[in-house]
Simulated scan of single mutants.
Amino acid sequence: MPSLTITSLDGVPLIQPGDDLAEIIVSCLDRQDLQLQSGDVLVLAQKIISKAEGRFRDLADIAPSHEATALAKETCKDPRLVQAILDESSEVVRKRKGVLVVRHKRGWVMAQAGIDQSNVEGADQGRLLLLPEDPDASAAHLRAALQGKLGIAPGIVIADSFGRPFRNGTTGTAIGAAGLTSFMDIRGEKDLFGRDLMVSTVAHADEIASSASLLMGQANEGQPIVLLRGLATSPNVPASSLIRPLEEDLFR
Rank of each mutant, 00 (worst) to 15 (best):
T171K: 11
S50T: 14
P165H: 03
R106S: 02
A45F: 00
F251L: 15
D40C: 00
V93P: 06
D196M: 11
D249K: 07
M216R: 03
R244A: 05
R55D: 05
S240Y: 06
I15H: 06
R164W: 11
A68D: 03
I175A: 03
V101I: 14
P17A: 03
D206A: 09
G194E: 12
S89G: 14
I6D: 12
I49R: 08
Q46D: 15
P64W: 11
D30Q: 08
I208G: 02
T233A: 14
D40E: 01
I152H: 07
L36V: 02
L29H: 05
P17Q: 02
R143F: 08
D40K: 03
K97Y: 06
K95G: 01
V41W: 00
L142T: 02
M198Q: 13
V43I: 08
R96G: 14
T171R: 12
F166A: 13
L9C: 00
P224C: 07
S234G: 08
R167W: 12
L29M: 05
M1W: 13
R57W: 05
P235F: 05
L197K: 13
W108V: 01
Q16Y: 06
D58H: 14
E91L: 13
S3Q: 14
T69M: 15
T170K: 04
S50R: 13
D124Y: 08
W108I: 01
K190C: 10
A219S: 12
G114W: 10
A113T: 07
T69V: 10
Q112P: 06
N119I: 08
E23N: 07
Q218D: 10
D134I: 06
T69E: 13
Q83C: 14
G222W: 07
W108G: 04
G188K: 06
K97Q: 14
K97D: 07
